[in-house]
Nucleic acid binder design. Structure first.
Length: 701
DNA sequence: GAGCACTGC
């Protein structure tokens, strides 16, 4: 049970097994809440930074002193001093992310090394670093800095370094003892990203080895916002838990009385109940599951909102999901005009990544779209499932950031109680090929790795098997990295792609493969929208290759790189400029790593067969065969699937054999990013005999 | 004829 069943203002958690509670008697309200996190983040992302030293008449120092942490500062520093490992349970608004690292610094620990603070998201690492630099009256990159992919804003002076968890993990692969660091703070640990989960084991091991070797000790601090801290404590040898009070306003909870199994309908009815009764300057945030659902409901809300009943109470309806163009996302941060209610329909992007100010009401559908990987079929399934109780509290909290609020839950109390306590950690529902390779690069056998939650044997085995087939390891048992494997681990890619780059020189097409893989690493470069569908189709048809999506991507990316005015060019061709720019960053990074690995640059010009053959070097396990009923069958996982509607080859005569990049199931199974392959090539693949056995047609015998 | 939640190196 969540300890805050009554959800009043002062988050107190009760004591854990090794509990230690810092009491706060001081209760002051912030006169001015610093402009919302997300807004700051967006500004930071746009390179504007956070300006001015004052906020609402409070100096930075006054703001610091107003944080709930401040009065117990000495006591916290004392705890940091005496414990090698410490777990902070800090509720929203406690200021732990900005303050604890400063306390570590102020108590002298940075004399012997840097304090690293990891974040799951780069935008958080950057914006928090900017904030703390201000508090320290320094420029970012001096005393306080950050390190994220493509951007290292730190210097030899830097003592407090914010970084993404993935960034620190990369560094650990080069230096498993994390020598430059005196303290590692793993923030937002409750999110349990794959990277944080791996880091748990790495820092624990580094601490042990450094202690045994009588080297500079490593201090570990885990910061979490949810209640499973006992799990963390147990993992870190019964580390002490310190509870930090947050600053939240009371949120009233309302559950539905009966379950009618149509959460969307319930949300809609609730919204208009609120709309009838609440003052118009109270904004509403509704949590739904995906783009399609959100767009559909937005339409409904708009149309009901236009009815006579609501003539005098206008609504501003704003969808919010990650695929939405940036400028439309920014709309949600603008205050609605006087006398207009803002209604935001969001995916769980508003749960953690973005914070919207002024939300008075939250309507929680209780559902989320979640990805689960099946290692037997090699398929990702994207399914709408019930949220966890922890997620429910996170959503509820979004109503109480600046004033008292109300959370309407489209599920009953007993349904809530049936929800799992915590969200399943990502590592238990992901493809582990990359993780296992990273561990091997650290000299760790994944079967014996000290996971906080150990993935299934099947999941680990299938990752090991893939690495063996890619020749990254020499044997299945007692897996050891080969030279190829060591090189593969250098790349920030799925091992199948790393392998392709390592072999591309043999096919004379490194330039082309890097471009294709760079685009696949990012988000979709082709803009899509239903209203200009035909126009877009024509614009994109220019790039379409008869061989499929990989070469279509290549055509588009090549032209992008040679365009005079890239931004205009993208606009004209309905391509996503931001995603192409990102792909170009990745391309440059991959080129750099290839150089380090002594892979010679080469280009095949328009000899596209070389590219198509080279794809198979990594994706030989992803062959699908056309069946009589015009469905594809994946040969290794034996999964029936269709081409994804976004494919360049949709609505064209289907080829007998294709190589696919992803197999994803939503309502049905789809092959994404495919290229036609010549059946003759299949005989030369490392798993040819297996493929032949699985084939059900006579095209490949 | 029908679509991908969210991150990150």
């Amino acid at each position: 049970m969540h300890p805050k069943a009554n959800f009043s203002g002062n988050f107190h958690s009760g004591k854990g097994e090794n509990g230690y509670k810092i009491n706060l008697n001081v209760k002051r309200k912030l006169k001015q809440v610093i402009s919302s996190e997300s807004e700051k983040r967006f500004r930071a992302e746009n390179g504007q930074g956070v300006k001015g030293r004052k906020s609402g008449g409070l100096t930075l120092q006054e703001q610091r002193e107003n944080l709930p942490l401040y009065p117990v500062r000495e006591s916290i520093i004392q705890q940091i001093r005496v414990n090698d490992t410490l777990i902070f349970l800090g509720e929203t608004g406690s200021g732990k992310t900005t303050q604890i690292p400063q306390y570590v610094h102020e108590s002298g620990f940075t004399r012997s090394g840097i304090v690293a603070v990891t974040q799951p998201r780069r935008i958080a690492a950057i914006s928090v670093a900017q904030r703390v630099a201000q508090e320290k009256f320094c420029q970012v990159g001096e005393l306080v800095g950050y390190t994220v992919r493509f951007e290292d804003c730190s210097s030899p002076e830097t003592k407090i370094r914010y970084m993404t968890d993935g960034s620190l993990l990369r560094e650990a692969i080069r230096d498993r003892l994390l020598t430059p660091y005196s303290t590692i703070i793993l923030d937002e640990a409750h999110e349990r990203t794959v990277n944080t989960d791996v880091l748990f084991g790495i820092v624990k091991e580094a601490q042990r080895i450094r202690k045994e070797a009588k080297k500079q000790p490593l201090k570990i601090i885990v910061m979490s916002a949810t209640m499973d801290v006992d799990h963390f404590s147990a993992y870190f040898n019964k580390a002490k838990i310190v509870y930090l009070e947050g600053r939240m306003y009371p949120v009233k909870l309302k559950h539905v009385k009966r379950n009618d199994h149509d959460y969307a309908q319930t949300c809609l009815i609730t919204l208009f109940d609120i709309h009838r009764n609440a003052p118009l300057d109270h904004d509403v945030l509704i949590f739904l599951t995906g783009q399609e659902e959100i767009d559909a409901m937005a339409e409904q809300v708009r149309s009901i909102g236009k009815s006579a009943e609501f003539h005098d109470s206008p609504l501003k309806v704003l969808p919010l999901y990650s695929q939405l163009p940036q400028h439309k996302q920014l709309e949600v941060f603008k205050p609605a005009p006087q006398g207009v209610r803002k209604v935001i329909l969001s995916t769980n992007i508003a749960e953690t990544s973005l914070t919207i100010s002024g939300i008075k009401y939250v309507i929680d559908s209780g559902m989320v779209k979640q990805k689960v990987y099946n290692s037997l079929t090699g398929m990702d399934t994207l399914k709408v499932v019930k949220i966890s109780q922890a997620q429910a509290w996170q959503r509820t909290g979004r109503a109480g950031r600046e004033s008292e609020g109300v959370c309407y839950r489209a599920y009953t109390v007993s349904e809530f109680e049936k929800m799992s306590l915590m969200t399943t950690p990502e590592i238990l529902r992901s493809n582990l090929a990359t993780t296992v390779l990273q561990l091997l690069a650290l000299g760790i056998d994944c079967m014996n790795f000290d996971f906080m939650d150990k993935p299934s044997r099947e999941s680990l085995n299938s990752a090991i098997k893939l690495l063996y087939e890619l020749k990254a390891i020499g044997a299945i048992e007692g897996a050891k990295l080969t030279e190829v494997g060591r090189k593969m681990s250098q790349f920030p890619l799925d091992p199948r792609f790393s392998k392709i780059l390592l072999e591309a020189a043999n096919y004379g097409c490194l330039t082309e493969m890097i471009m294709i893989i760079a685009v696949l690493s990012g988000e979709n470069i082709f803009y899509s929208s239903t209203d200009k569908r035909d126009q877009i189709l024509v614009a994109h048809s220019k790039f379409v290759s008869k061989y499929g999506d990989h070469l279509t991507i290549l055509n588009a990316f090549r032209e992008f790189l040679s365009a005079e005015n890239a931004k205009m060019w993208c606009f004209k061709h309905f391509l996503n400029y931001r995603n192409l720019m990102y792909a170009n960053e990745v391309r440059k990074q991959l080129l750099e790593i290839c150089k380090r690995c002594n892979i010679d640059e080469s280009t095949c010009g328009n000899d596209y067969d070389q590219v198509r053959k080279c794809l198979l070097v990594g994706l030989f396990g992803n062959i699908a065969e056309l069946q009589r009923d015009q469905m594809y069958l994946t040969l290794v996982g034996r999964q029936r699937a269709k081409l994804h509607p976004s494919s360049a080859l949709c609505h064209k005569p289907l080829a007998d054999y294709v190589v696919y990049t992803d197999l994803v199931a939503t309502e049905r199974a789809y092959l994404k990013y495919i290229t036609i392959v010549d059946p003759d090539w299949l005989h030369e693949l490392p798993n040819a005999s297996k493929l032949r056995r699985y084939s059900t047609t006579n095209n490949f015998k």
